[in-house]
């Protein structure tokens, strides 16, 4: 992939030389909005994390106090733990299932359209509604899931109210939402693989599994990296469906970092300093994880 502009663009130098404003005018609207609503606030977020406020209106400078406070806040560490576990579980599950689904869908011919539509359905539903639906479906006594489970004699676990299960439920629902989307991306990657490779493999007597392992997965790697990066970011960002599914409970077991930021910033008692420090920490982590993902992906690609 070429990140830099192609060399041939230089041919336009003649047109560009001097005071030609065209490119600047073209980028201006986008960069103006971008600068005002993303870049500037991003830097200002760092600034904000050195202040505290208990009402979001009046601020007092506290130096690095927010950071020392947050690092000694046991709730924060709980939130970090849930967020990491959630993200790990979600990334692994949605990547593995997404790949399996993409492989199967890609080779399925009859009914493929209808099947894709079914798997894509959750992508279309507002996460808020997803939370409402699953809250009903996972209810211990009146939910669909336990109705089925108890019918086959598996008891009725408290999916949303048992601290040891609720995070798993949230991971499963998160995967349910994104699976179809990732599968579509992976299918586009699968379709870019040269089909003659498979024919050659088949002639050499390779089994289906062998050709998946030796041809598909290595060549699918770049697309897989994209899905992993996407899933990582989505994992760290998860909030909306959790908010209506468990409200972060039971006992905070599914409170993830975004909810922590949101509640500290906007719910009484307001601790704005904690919220902005958590936001900065989240930003650094997301950036680092994405960068490492990307770097590993690129390096293994070049080997």
């Amino acid at each position: 992939m070429s990140v830099m502009a192609p060399a041939r663009a230089r041919g336009f130098r003649g047109w560009m030389r001097g005071k030609n404003l065209a490119p600047y005018l073209f980028v201006l609207p986008n960069m103006l909005i971008f600068g005002v609503f993303t870049i500037w606030p991003a830097f200002n977020g760092f600034n904000l994390s050195f202040y505290d406020s208990s009402n979001g209106r009046t601020y007092r400078p506290v130096g690095t106090g927010n950071y020392t406070n947050i690092l000694s806040d046991s709730q924060f560490w709980g939130v970090v733990q849930h967020t990491v576990l959630f993200t790990l579980g979600f990334v692994v599950l949605s990547t593995v299932l997404g790949t399996a689904l993409a492989l199967m869908l890609n080779s399925q011919r009859r009914g493929r359209g209808a099947l894709s539509a079914a798997y894509f359905l959750p992508v279309l539903i507002s996460p808020v509604v997803v939370g409402i639906i699953w809250k009903a479906a996972l209810d211990r006594t009146t939910g669909l899931v336990n109705q089925v489970l108890s019918a086959i004699g598996l008891g009725s676990p408290g999916w949303l109210v048992d601290s040891s299960l609720s995070l798993i439920s949230v991971i499963l629902v998160g995967t349910w939402i994104h699976l179809g989307f990732y599968a579509v991306i992976l299918i586009s990657g699968l379709q870019a693989i040269d089909t003659s490779l498979y024919e050659a493999a088949r002639m050499d007597g390779a089994s289906v599994w062998q050709s998946v392992r030796l041809i598909t997965l290595p060549l699918l790697r770049p697309t897989l990296m994209v899905v992993i990066i996407l899933a990582t970011i989505a994992g760290f960002q998860a909030f909306d469906f959790v908010y209506t599914l468990t409200g972060g409970g039971p006992v905070g077991a599914t409170t993830l970092i975004i909810q922590y930021i949101y509640e500290n910033a906007f719910s009484y008692p307001i601790q704005y300093g904690l919220a902005s420090a958590a936001a900065v920490i989240l930003f650094v982590v997301v950036f680092a994880v994405t960068f490492i993902n990307y770097a590993i992906g690129r390096r293994s690609e070049s080997i």
């Binding site: 006594t141 109210v161 468990t246 972060g248 905070g252 509640e263």
Partner: peptide, 11 residues
Amino acid sequence: PKDFWLGSGSK
């Protein structure tokens, strides 16, 4: 009801 008490988060 225990589920009610635990199922509603902090709200």
